[in-house]
């Protein structure tokens, strides 16, 4: 689904990634973890095509990201949905128009069909119909994320990229948002890639965890295997007070 080979990134003299490889299979739910400034979001932006690595190749759906004509590239972009950290809703459009926007741009669905699909997506992310006319400035943080998720899903993507999906949400909302993503992953057979700092989110969501350290992916394995992986970052991340408690909670739920 997503294949990164030999990615190298640098900002001026600072090298962020060097010879980074990652292969994500269809249907996986991959969490990308790493210390602050290790280039997680940058890697996500490489996959979206907002930035280009100076070395290496990004492949999506088996094809290089920037191959083919403009139309082919545009169609490829429509096969994945992105949830930005701050939601990135258009502040001039209301909730329904925001969700409908990618669909309208496609010029395939009739206005009535757009309405139906928007209503269905809103129900999917547990928004009430009367929220449709609200402006983004009137929404709470959790609702912004829900609307942004609905917008990311409206083109029925195969791949969903989430940048800090639970950052800025209270634990309760964060848990329900995680449950929502997990439910959607199951129902829509999505492939999901997310960047997160939150061990709870990570434990609840991921089928695989990619650990970004020393400018490359040092480990790509399931949660159980990652926890036992011997690396200073993994130790700090999962072995810290918060990490241990979150893992204990996670195991408790599964027993």
């Amino acid at each position: 689904m997503v294949s990164l080979t030999g990615i190298g990134t640098r900002f001026g003299p600072t090298v962020i990634h060097e010879g980074l490889d990652l292969e994500v299979a269809r249907g996986e739910m991959v969490s990308l973890v790493g210390g602050s400034g290790s280039g997680k979001t940058t890697l996500l932006r490489h996959i979206i095509g907002l930035t280009r690595p100076y070395a290496g190749q990004v492949e999506l759906f088996g094809e290089p990201l920037f191959s083919g004509s403009a139309t082919v590239q545009r169609d490829r972009r429509r096969r994945f949905g992105v949830l930005f950290q701050q939601g990135a809703l258009c502040s001039a459009l209301n909730v329904a128009e925001n969700i409908a926007f990618p669909l309208r741009e496609l010029r395939v669905a009739s206005p009535a069909e757009v309405d139906t699909l928007v209503a269905q997506k809103m129900a999917m992310v547990e928004l009430e119909p009367h929220h449709a006319v609200l402006m983004p400035a009137e929404l709470s943080g959790g609702m912004v994320k829900r609307v942004a998720l609905a917008r990311a899903l409206v083109l029925e993507p195969e791949l969903l990229l989430l940048d800090e999906p639970t950052a800025g949400l209270d634990p309760d909302r964060s848990a329900s948002f995680v449950a929502l993503i997990r439910e959607l992953h199951k129902r829509l057979s999505l492939t999901v890639m997310l960047v997160t700092h939150d061990v709870d989110t990570l434990a609840a969501l991921s089928t695989k965890i990619a650990v970004l350290a020393e400018r490359r992916i040092v480990s790509y394995a399931s949660l159980e295997e990652t926890v036992t992986f011997d690396h200073p970052f993994v130790e700090r991340f999962f072995g810290g007070e918060q990490g241990r408690r979150a893992l204990a909670r996670h195991h408790g739920e599964h027993r």
């Binding site: 329904a96 269905q120 129900a123 999917m124 009367h130």
Partner: peptide, 14 residues
Amino acid sequence: DAISRHAVQRLPKP
């Protein structure tokens, strides 16, 4: 079924 539930109700318009 999901569509059938949302096709009837119109979204509120400004």
